[in-house]
């Protein structure tokens, strides 16, 4: 993916934009899983990305799952049929949803018919993505501690008319019963704009 990014220095195409956003999701989800301790820290390894040191999982099952989802996301991003990606963190014990990391995607559907790439440098986009990921890292300071064992799920909000692919199924939105929301930074490739936010269960003992 990195190689592809390097190649497309001259402008942003729809395909390139989908790649960039999907890659961001991959790293973003990995960061969240590491930061929130959903998987043991020793199963993560360090990589350099966006001028940051990020942690990505080495767990083969998790890797496989993430790749599956990210590849599917890439296709949907390219078709502009995806509206939102949500990382839902829930307690394994009682299935209660504790955190929702929401990434709203605004697709410029006009880009579908365009042949000329948009004017925005890779560096500018990467800088924006870097600040989003930095913010994700920084949220640890105010998010409540996850005291129980947790698992995560990835929800994808798509257009209603989308055909559900094999191995995928419809799901509920998995709301948090009593939540606090914080809006994070956003970034745009000029074709896809990603608005990030996190909602978490209000601490019952303030």
């Amino acid at each position: 993916m990195a190689a592809q990014l390097g190649r497309e220095q001259q402008g942003i195409t729809l395909r390139g934009s989908a790649e960039i956003v999907a890659e961001f999701f991959s790293y973003g989800i990995n960061s969240i899983l590491y930061q929130r301790g959903i998987y043991p820290p020793e199963t993560f390894t360090r990589v350099q990305k966006y001028g940051l040191t990020l942690l990505v999982t080495t767990d083969p099952e998790l890797k496989n799952y993430l790749n599956n989802v990210v590849e599917q996301m890439k296709e949907w991003l390219y078709k502009c049929t995806v509206q939102r990606l949500v990382v839902v963190i829930s307690s394994i014990e009682n299935n209660e949803v504790l955190e929702r990391w929401q990434f709203d995607i605004e697709c410029d559907k006009n880009a579908k018919g365009e042949s000329a790439p948009r004017e925005k440098s890779q560096k500018a986009i990467q800088d924006e993505i870097r600040s989003v990921i930095r913010q994700i890292t920084a949220t640890v300071t105010f998010l409540p501690l996850l005291e129980t064992a947790c698992a995560f799920d990835l929800l994808i909000y798509t257009d209603k008319d989308l055909v559900v692919p094999e191995k995928w199924e419809e799901s509920g939105p998995q709301f948090i019963a009593n939540s606090e929301e914080v809006r994070l930074r956003s970034f745009t490739t000029t074709i896809h704009k990603v608005n990030s936010m996190v909602a978490y269960k209000k601490d019952s003992f303030p």
Binding site: D159, L162, S171, G172
Partner: peptide, 8 residues
Amino acid sequence: KTKVLHFS
């Protein structure tokens, strides 16, 4: 307008 999907 929207539906929610997830990997089974």
